[in-house]
């Protein structure tokens, strides 16, 4: 299981996607917590990349939980009509890890 805290910027987003998938592959991680508490905006582009990362990780056999999405970011995602429907979320890192453990069956 790995947890990452990131600062998402446009030019780092794609890089982040590649790095994360590489790391999942290397470590054989079954679960990933991505902490977004330092990300102050998510536009439709970054949301797309995040959604893709979750799907791609899933293909590699790792479940992703997003944590620490800020209130303002959540409001704007809903304003934009972006649902991130099939992505799990948790309040913080600790709860994210708990959720992963639960989802992965203990």
């Amino acid at each position: 299981m790995i947890s990452i805290q990131i600062e998402l910027d446009d030019h780092t987003a794609i890089q982040f996607q590649e790095d994360l998938l590489e790391k999942i592959h290397e470590t054989g991680a079954k679960g990933v917590v991505i902490d977004l508490s330092t990300v102050d905006i998510i536009d439709s582009y970054i949301a797309k990349i995040l959604g893709d990362v979750v799907k791609m990780s899933d293909l590699l056999g790792a479940k992703v939980v997003l944590t620490g999405i800020r209130p303002a970011v959540a409001i704007i995602l809903t304003d934009l009509g972006i649902r991130l429907n099939n992505i799990s979320t948790a309040l913080d890192l600790e709860k994210g890890l708990a959720k992963l453990k639960q989802d992965l069956g203990g």
Partner: peptide
């Protein structure tokens, strides 16, 4: 307010992109 700041910033991001 900080939510409206984020709305404005996000809108600019979308337009610029």
């Amino acid at each position: 307010g900080h939510v409206d700041q984020a709305r404005i910033t996000t809108a600019i991001s979308e337009l610029a992109r």
